[in-house]
Design a protein around this nucleic acid. Structure first.
Length: 396
DNA sequence: GAAACTATCATGACCACACGTCGTT
DNA sequence: CTAACGACGTGTGGTCATGATAGTT
């Protein structure tokens, strides 16, 4: 009873999710959970159907789609919560982020519509449009039979999606092989640009290594469009990787391998340790701890100027010796964990909180209770129990 | 432009003690 | 096998010290 009253920080997302596996199935195949909502078709589509339908022709590929809300999985997502790394519809966004003051401070950005081929080019177009896909991952080649201005926008947009890290591209246009210069790989933020995620996303790292020298683009678009790319990657980590494998030319795959090798070398050189996809902070983690996030992850202190905050976190050990299956499983676990992670402080033992709040302090530190104080406190707690009915604190 | 200084912000440490967990009897 | 007991570790919040950053001079 008492514990439940205090466990208000539990995310509404989990509550909603607990209702079932998925709430809405694909309008086309009716056998898979929907992943995107196509505005043009007014249809909810799974990843496979979306790829099939919107890769059918160029017109279809221009359909604007948005991700389905990750919480209710019933409505198109309207906002991307950066703190939760979740796409949410308006309703869920309101519910979740009005739960408590901390949640209300989450930074959310409007979901940007998706267009183009999300899952690589259609097979029929691969041969003729290799260059276009190398540059953009989506359909970005010049279209001579349609508006040129529109093409330019598409090209810039698609190109930007491949830029995981604007800084990286900004610095590396002349860098032909990232494995040739490990320091540069690290120093330009290749691995950890901006926010360092406690759940290091290897997929993102790997997938970002492909287009190193295949194109240059207008860097002024990077900042605004970076978030859109992140949105895509948040949704299609592993699948996107496989799709990339389908859609990119062998040169890129080679570069991905080079990047992985470089990563391994760099990590070993720097004492990096990443153990099997989960980063240990030397804290015991029980099943109850899933929702507990160390305060250190709630905010991110920026690294000193001109430096890359590679090692601000715990020691991590990179390992690239996973089998494909093992690695995929780990990545899936990571993504599931990332979805369910909570940034709010969760009170596991409300009784301890209650005691802590009533405990005498000296300059904020707990102080020893005098006999009188203990007696008064005892009386207070006793009366509280009889009045409110509090007493036994359920264990978890 | 560089250096020095101040203001602001973020984060970890500290404290006592009730409670949870585990091993032993 | 179960219950009782003891030892030990954990978790809790307010304040302060410290370090980093931003802004100003």
């Amino acid at each position: 009873m008492l514990e439940q009253d205090f466990l208000t920080t539990t995310s509404a997302t989990a509550t909603v999710r607990s209702a079932g596996t998925w709430a809405r199935t694909c309008d086309t195949c009716r056998s898979a959970p929907c992943a995107v909502f196509c505005r043009a078709d007014s249809a909810y589509l799974c990843a496979a159907c979306d790829a099939r339908i919107h890769a059918a022709n160029r017109v279809a590929s221009r359909h604007e789609r948005v991700w389905v809300c990750e919480a209710c999985e019933r409505a198109p997502a309207a906002f991307l919560c950066k703190a939760d790394a979740a796409s949410l519809c308006s309703t869920c966004d309101a519910d979740i982020h009005s739960a408590n003051p901390l949640a209300s401070r989450h930074q959310r950005v409007p979901i940007l519509p998706i267009s183009g081929y999300l899952y690589g080019p259609p097979a029929t177009l691969l041969g003729a449009e290799d260059e276009g896909f190398v540059r953009g991952g989506c359909e970005v080649e010049e279209e001579e039979d349609e508006g040129v201005d529109h093409d330019m926008e598409d090209e810039n947009e698609a190109a930007s999606w491949l830029l995981l890290n604007p800084l990286k591209n900004n610095n590396n246009n002349s860098n032909n092989n990232i494995s040739n210069d490990h320091n540069q790989v690290a120093n330009n933020g290749y691995l950890f640009s901006g926010e360092v995620d406690e759940y290091l996303d290897l997929v993102d790292c790997n997938s970002c290594g492909g287009d190193e020298n295949t194109f240059t683009t207008n860097n002024t678009h990077h900042h605004d469009e970076y978030s859109q790319q992140q949105q895509q990657q948040d949704h299609y980590g592993v699948p996107q990787k496989s799709y990339v494998g389908d859609s990119v030319v062998p040169v890129q795959q080679q570069q991905v391998q080079n990047f992985q090798l470089g990563l391994e070398f760099e990590s070993s050189k720097a004492g990096f340790s990443y153990n099997g996809g989960s980063i240990s902070q030397s804290v015991s983690v029980s099943s109850m701890d899933v929702g507990v996030v160390p305060e250190s992850t709630m905010t991110y202190s920026r690294p000193p100027k001109g430096t890359i905050d590679l090692f601000s976190g715990p020691s991590i050990q990179m390992s690239s010796h996973f089998s494909p299956m093992d690695r995929e499983a780990r990545v899936l676990r990571y993504r599931e964990k990332k979805k369910t992670r909570k940034f709010e402080k969760t009170i596991r033992y409300a009784s301890r909180k209650a005691y802590a709040e009533t405990r005498p302090r000296i300059k904020g530190r707990f102080a020893k209770r005098t006999d009188v104080e203990a007696e008064v406190d005892q009386m207070f707690s006793t009366s509280l129990i009889t009045e409110v009915g509090y007493g036994i604190v359920p264990s978890f």
